[in-house]
């Protein structure tokens, strides 16, 4: 039973809110620091690419957002599944917190991808790129979850419905990616893949990895900020929340 202690504690909004209040500034600070350092490193100190010149440097923004937004979808679905199966309120709140942040990160990945596309392919949007097209579908999947939240009058049913939709989406994300990939190879066999790790130089890779870690931390900080709001919204009738507010202002 001792091993499950943390799980039960995690399920207690009261315990969690106390912890989150302390973590948020640190996570935000660390995320901004790493992401900022990686950007400076990538923009100023990495030599230009022999093929793309300086325009490749947008990967230090684009790739981290793309990576995190995909991971966020899975994190959202896992939180949703925990909420659906074990009826854990905190998991529902976590899912509600991840969804808007994930959607925003996906939108950023799409915009930066399009900006990168202009100097590279000569057009803002190239459908042959399976990654970018899947990203667009991912954005729609996020929007579906958010729309469901709005549509349900009752909070708990909305959470469960959204969790189910997110789970169905996770099964589909790899299939969608595979199908778009297959489709683009059909039309343009030699698609260019800049972001594959094997073709990237270590000098370029190191700041990229740093940026990805920074982006994860930023994401965590934003989700936690959302989660604190969700806990307050969900527990607004509990006695402990009033005490908590009093303690913080005291």
């Amino acid at each position: 039973m001792a091993n499950w202690q943390w799980f039960h504690r995690l399920g207690s909004p009261k315990w969690l809110l106390g912890k989150l209040d302390r973590w948020t500034p640190w996570l935000l600070f660390a995320g901004l620091l790493l992401f900022g350092a990686a950007s400076v490193w990538g923009l100023a100190f990495v030599p230009p690419d022999y093929k793309q010149g300086n325009s490749f440097r947008i990967i230090y923004i684009h790739v981290p957002f793309a990576v995190v937004s995909l991971a966020a979808y899975y994190a959202m679905a896992i939180a949703g599944a925990v909420g659906l199966i074990w009826r854990m309120k905190v998991a529902d709140m976590a899912m509600r917190s991840i969804a808007p942040v994930g959607a925003a990160f996906t939108a950023l990945a799409l915009v930066t991808g399009a900006i990168w596309g202009k100097p590279t392919w000569g057009a803002y949007w190239v459908w042959q790129d399976a990654r970018l097209t899947s990203m667009l579908v991912l954005f729609f999947l996020y929007m579906g979850v958010l729309a469901l939240y709005d549509a349900y009058r009752e909070r708990s049913s909305g959470s469960r419905a959204a969790a189910l939709v997110a789970l169905v989406g996770t099964v589909n994300v790899p299939i969608i990616y595979k199908s778009v990939d297959w489709w683009s190879s059909l039309h343009q066999p030699a698609s260019i893949k800049f972001t594959e790790a094997s073709t990237i130089d270590a000098q370029m890779l190191q700041p990229l990895l740093l940026a990805i870690v920074g982006c994860y931390l930023l994401f965590a900080a934003l989700v936690i900020a959302q989660l604190r709001v969700q806990i307050v919204l969900g527990e607004n009738r509990s006695q402990w929340l009033g005490d908590h507010a009093v303690n913080r202002t005291a």
């Binding site: 579908v137 729609f140 999947l141 929007m143 579906g144 729309a147 469901l148 939709v165 169905v168 989406g169 589909n172 299939i175 969608i176 595979k178 199908s179 778009v180």
Partner: peptide, 9 residues
């Protein structure tokens, strides 16, 4: 909104 993304494949 929910279903069309899943219809992509």
């Amino acid at each position: 909104l929910l279903i069309l993304p899943l219809y992509v494949p």
